[in-house]
């Protein structure tokens, strides 16, 4: 009987330990107290000394530090393809209450015409949680209590609507008797891509898969440039969102941001694209540094990390092997 006492006590201890763990977890969930911290990629938007404007080649961007974001194929319930662009390089700045985001990626083909039905446009989009989002939204078009705001730039929209005779050599087109919108059926139906005044950027909102639509207020501006096999696109918008379904920003605030890239020559369109996971975007009150390209510290850190991991890992493995052999 006496021998059983420690075992009974141990069961009590285990039971109490389990109950304590279950209660502690319930408490954390109830108070939404998450002790874990994100260690994913992040991007800091420093304060620019002058207006970066829409030109991706503007000198002010040279001092902004990029983050390289890995992409993968688009999620979907069917084979959506995508995934041909492996990474994007993103920079961010802010100036007088406006956020500027510059996205750059390698693409050897400049696909900016969609007049032929078999042609598709290069494009890029950034996604933010809506101002009204109660939590971090689902990356794929948000969720009911946490919508997303998407800014999409398209190369074909920037290049403008091309005349069919420019695309199909030798084609004959009858003269249109009128310029009235009624005779441009897509424009008359409200298709924003048929509107020559739309500009290259659309701002869209969504609250779950299948609910993506254009926002009531189109206040995001953007411009892209293709040089030597690289696209660079700048987006800009004022901090304040037009309505709760759009993103809002503030000095010192942190939000999430995801990227999507369409490679037209690979047949990317709609859901067929390369996408990233969310990275964090912090809008810093600090002024953008002078830069200058001194990367000595970064190179030293890279060498130390890579060399250190090899030495530590291999050294401990050998040490442990010797300990084992000595036993």
């Amino acid at each position: 009987m006496y021998k059983r006492l420690p075992r009974v006590r141990r069961r009590w201890q285990l039971g109490l330990g389990a109950a304590a763990a279950l209660l502690a977890a319930a408490g954390l969930q109830f108070f939404d107290a998450n002790p874990a911290t994100s260690q994913s990629l992040f991007l800091t938007a420093y304060s620019a000394g002058s207006d970066p404007g829409l030109d991706p080649a503007d000198g002010v961007w040279k001092n902004a530090v990029p983050v390289q974001v890995p992409l993968t194929a688009q999620a979907g319930t069917y084979a959506a393809g995508g995934g041909s662009i492996p990474t994007v390089s993103a920079k961010a700045l802010h100036y007088q209450g406006k956020l500027y985001v510059r996205v750059e990626w390698a693409d050897t083909t400049k696909d900016e015409s969609t007049t032929k039905v078999e042609n598709f446009s290069d494009a890029v989009a950034v996604e933010f949680p809506a101002k009204s989002a109660a939590s971090v939204p689902a990356l794929c078009m948000g969720q009911a209590d946490a919508g997303v705001n998407i800014w999409q730039w398209r190369a074909d929209s920037q290049a403008g609507i091309k005349d069919p005779v420019d695309v199909y050599a030798g084609a004959l087109v009858d003269m249109y008797p009128t310029k009235d919108t009624l005779f441009y059926t897509a424009r008359a139906a409200g298709n924003p891509y048929a509107n020559p005044d739309q500009g290259p950027v659309q701002t869209l909102v969504s609250q779950t898969f299948g609910t993506l639509t254009i926002a009531n207020v189109q206040d995001v501006r953007g411009q892209g440039a293709w040089n030597n096999g690289n696209w660079a696109v700048v987006f800009t918008r004022s901090y304040a969102g037009a309505d709760p379904s759009q993103a809002a920003f503030a000095d010192g605030a942190t939000t999430d941001m995801a990227f999507a890239v369409w490679n037209g020559s690979e047949g990317d369109r709609n859901g067929r694209k390369s996408v990233s996971a969310f990275v964090r975007l912090t809008i810093s009150g600090t002024d953008l540094g002078a830069g200058g390209g001194d990367n000595t510290l970064a190179i030293a850190l890279a060498v130390a990390l890579l060399g250190g991991t090899v030495v530590i890992g291999a050294g401990l493995a050998i040490s442990g092997y010797r300990e084992k052999a000595a036993r």
Partner: peptide, 14 residues
């Protein structure tokens, strides 16, 4: 990831 974080912290970028 660490190099990216260090770059954002002003340690230079590679």
């Amino acid at each position: 990831t660490t190099l990216q974080a260090a770059a954002q912290g002003g340690l230079g970028t590679i």
